[in-house]
Design a protein around this nucleic acid. Structure first.
Lengths: 345, 345
DNA sequence: ATGAAAGCGCTAACAG
DNA sequence: CTGTTAGCGCTTTCAT
């Protein structure tokens, strides 16, 4: 294609836009062109070559919109990220974006395109129905339940090819893949206590269901061990958290000696604020995060955290979705998280 | 929709899939339904309400594929990430993924969907033509030129709605937005030298054009200042870089005292290896990174780096693309990067 | 204000 | 092996 640019030779002034145009030039019928280009049916080799040559020369490509309309499948998977609790939270959040990267890799490998849609449920009541019913996607992956658990449930029965990243609740109907957040919370609290904490705090928003489960797990352990625990709410938007955490730290100084951060992102920010205030970690205060993002091993001191394997999660999401696309009614996939002991607790 | 599920009432067993189905039920013509649902033309208010009611009750949504085929526009922007130099480099790379997040935010805000495609040029000769000609996207943003500069150039003249993130070269034809990498390289080298380095190294692959420009800038300064500089190649795939960097460090021990890392990701890894080897930064060795990712301020010591404003970049990409979609032949947008002095140099 | 009809560009029977 | 035909589901003149 590089050398043989047809531009110069004064042959074809009218661009060839459709399979029919091409058919005319090749002196065959549209049907034949379609067959030739899809490499599918039995077409005379000569004809095929001729058609392919013309197509190449003119840089012609069959219109996918038309093809897909006809074939009733799109080859694209929709990925929706509902931003429910905190509109200012951006897709650019580390965890989501990391998961998204893996999803892209995984889907591409399976031959699917990925259509990304960030939705703000508060502004768009039926984002999910709209996405599903749009006819633009063969299936949907929802990344994070946010505060949309019920809406997702509503849809789940009527729409098979949907898989959700998030928390699993007893008896829920939608297929979810994610870590056992409650267990993760337990691991975190146990570790904090084991490393000497006498009074705990959960740092992060407790509204989102995943976080609520983490907090619940921690509370359970705390109660059993007779250790107090309190919640220190923060927002997810990056600008605000810094300040909020600083304020919290001021407020709890001396009263709390073990912090369970809802996410590594929060933990890292917290670590930095602690360093600013000259508070020693883990000497005076212990911290455990959640996620085990790439950053977490790079902090100083390296962060003790509860790992959920994001790459495996992405793989699981895609795998289940493909099976659902094939008609199977898959179960949820809840993987146990693992405590990664580094140096902050 | 929650309570009034029509399932139970024995009314409508046949799901309503098309605008024509709905038309039948409403006792009007498909055309009217179309008009009513697109809220566009003048339709009797009663009819519209009736139609909307039915649509809502049945959870009906017009098929976008069909609509778009008809309208000849898709409302989706393609985002292609060519993985040219290092197939193992995943989309999950921090920088790309961060940019991608901002792009998603930005495009969503403008009412576009985003179709993500990771391409491996080596396996797919004409990824770009295919993407553009697919009829699935109204425009294309290419994130990173990788080794595909020429291919992108080939396409640029014939296809207006394309904007590329990457490096700008004198006289190029495709519209690019990005940082002035050469200038960034100069800033980095100047800083290293100013902070006492006597012998420099560029750590990273020098093949990709952006990196080549960074290296060139650094070389220019080094030459002018009479300081030696060498290239220490690494790969972009996360698993390998750690080892490669370790080997490089071994090899250059004592011979190099200033490292310009091609990206912050590399710099951070390098920092960790240095810490392992007990080499003091910036005492024995200085480091400057590139990008100013969120991590970079969190390292210990915090990383001195050359910032390119990713959010602004995303905004620029989208802005230019929209103008191109409107027919304007926009110029490239090259923003000067800024040296962020922290503690590693 | 609404209906009828003609496609958007492609694919898949069905005949030859 | 190839041409013909009938749509996929929607939008939009053109008439009424």
């Amino acid at each position: 294609m590089a050398e043989s640019d047809a531009q110069s030779s004064g042959t074809a002034p009218k661009r060839i836009r459709t399979i029919t145009d091409l058919a005319k030039i090749a002196g065959v019928s549209p049907g034949t062109v379609s067959r030739a280009l899809s490499g599918n049916s039995l077409v005379n080799n000569k004809t095929r070559e001729k058609i392919e040559a013309i197509a190449r020369e003119h840089g012609f490509r069959p219109n996918q919109m038309a093809s897909k309309l006809r074939m009733q499948k799109t080859g694209v998977i929709g990925v929706a990220i509902p931003l429910g609790h905190d509109v200012r939270q951006q897709i650019s959040d580390s965890f989501f974006i990391t998961l998204l990267g893996y999803l892209a890799d995984e889907l591409t490998e399976k031959g699917y395109d990925l259509m990304l849609r960030r939705v703000i449920p508060a502004q768009d009541e039926d984002w999910l129905d709209r996405f599903i019913g749009s006819g633009m996607v063969d299936g949907v992956i929802v990344v994070g339940q946010s505060d949309q658990f019920d809406r997702i449930e509503d849809v789940a029965d009527g729409y098979l090819p949907m898989v959700v990243w998030g928390n699993h609740q007893e008896g829920q109907r939608h297929c979810v893949v994610g870590a056992d957040n409650r267990l993760g919370g337990k691991l975190a609290a146990e570790r904090l206590i084991a490393s000497g904490a006498k009074s705990l705090a959960f740092l992060g928003d407790t509204e989102p269901i995943e976080f609520a489960a983490r907090y619940a797990g921690a509370r359970e352990v705390a109660a059993r061990m007779g250790v107090p625990i309190r919640a220190l709410p923060t927002h997810l938007s990056p600008e605000r958290t810094g300040k909020e955490i600083a304020e919290h730290l001021q407020e709890i100084e001396g009263k709390v000696d073990g912090i369970f951060a809802a996410t590594d992102t929060i933990a890292v920010t917290c670590l930095r604020e602690l360093r600013k205030r000259g508070i020693e970690v883990p000497g005076q205060l212990r911290i455990v995060g959640f996620d085990d993002l790439p950053i977490s091993s790079q902090t100083v001191p390296p962060l003790t955290t509860v790992r959920q394997d994001i790459a495996a999660g992405a793989k699981g999401l895609v795998d289940l979705l493909l099976r659902r696309l094939a008609g199977e009614d898959t179960e949820s996939l809840v993987r146990p998280p693992h405590l990664i002991i580094r140096e902050t607790a």
